[in-house]
Design a protein around this nucleic acid. Structure first.
Lengths: 207, 207
DNA sequence: AGGAAATGTGAACAGTGTTCACTTACTTTA
DNA sequence: TAAAGTAAGTGAACACTGTTCACATTTCCT
């Protein structure tokens, strides 16, 4: 019965081809050029065909988001070797902001756009948004490790992780959404870095 | 020459009527129902007419944004009476998140949507986004006050203000954009409050 | 009264996500 | 092998979106 398997394989291959094309459009043209018609044109199919492989655009964006989380995961993993919990947490924070600046479209997809999260809601799972949770857990673990070794003294690792996440996400989101325009462009990055440094300093003495 | 004045007045009145209609749509239907055609219908004009009073939709959104900042300003002003700098800063932080939860559409308009900021960029002013800067300055002042009275010891009030802003903005933005879905709904608010409390605690001991 | 300026509009353009009847191609069964 | 059944793909349409522009109407000033 190799024929059913082949069909299955071909199906996921086409699905992957669609995602690859969408990914390429995302990176090269920016997220508002990613329309169903543009994706269809890129893979030389009709727009309607995409709906044979994805329920709607939100599901496609959700699939793209999952792929993107793979990239963030790899970036985070490279910091796992840092033994000191404080330094590891700070590195994670810096990495998050760096990721937002280096891959703005992916960051938008993962943490700002509403579309992919509507797909998550539509799934109605009991443990929703596993890829988001997995990334969050890296931070939780770093803090838990710090609590275990007595470096951090705070009541709850998840709460502390949420605080750290909010901090770096806020900085990245304000920057990407142009809310820091009143800082002169040549000083903007410096302000962001100093602000992040101040947070890290507070972590050191306050957490 | 009262006739030219009357014309001017009528013009701004109609402009205001358009904004009022858009505002109403925003609050009642949510921001993705605010289309030029819907606004036009609400004021019983043709869609093309709106373009006599606003260059494009971004300018209209920018005008709406400015109005919204008036509301935030009033909310912030009511905290100006708090003398203790630490308490005032904490109150400002709480107020920011509270505002986001109570007026999600306005918050999106002010701090997340790209449209209004494109209008800001198009203006090309030397000191752009005055309403944003004004709100930010409330935080800067609170921190500066704290530095002057020796409560806070940090090198730069603006940097500290950016940190605080990022913190609360991150929390609000993650919440509004559904990135906290993996926290069970009944515990979500508690996590947010605890996270904010932890930040406030760190401010107290680390700033 | 007549020309000029301001005000308003219908229709169109190019774009969006999505659906559905329809054709084409492949696979299974009799 | 021929017929039946299933899977894959599509063109055209629907109801939207922001925006422009030639045209009509109203208002103003000389």
């Amino acid at each position: 019965m190799g024929i059913a398997e082949r069909k299955e394989r071909e199906k996921t291959e086409r699905r992957q081809a669609i995602l690859a094309a969408a990914q390429r459009l995302f990176n090269e043209q920016g997220f508002d050029k990613v329309s169903m018609r543009n994706i269809a044109e890129a893979i030389e199919y009709s727009p309607a065909t995409i709906y044979l492989y994805f329920k709607d655009k939100n599901e496609l964006l959700f699939a793209l988001q999952n792929q993107a989380f793979g990239q963030l995961r790899r970036a985070f993993e490279s910091l796992e070797s840092i033994e000191h919990p404080g330094e590891r947490l700070q590195a994670l924070c810096r990495q998050y902001v760096e990721f937002a600046i280096e891959h703005p479209e992916l960051f938008e997809l993962m943490f700002i756009m509403t579309g992919p999260m509507e797909a998550v809601e539509a799934q109605g799972e009991r443990a929703p948004w596993a890829s988001g949770r997995a990334a969050f857990d890296r931070v939780v673990q770093a803090i838990q490790h710090g609590m275990d070794t007595g470096v951090f003294r705070c009541p709850d690792a998840e709460v502390a992780a949420l605080m750290a996440w909010s901090q770096v996400h806020g900085l990245a989101a304000l920057y990407l959404r142009k809310r820091l325009v009143f800082f002169p462009e040549e000083e903007r990055m410096a302000y962001m870095n100093k602000s992040l440094a101040l947070f890290n300093h507070m972590l050191e003495y306050g957490l």
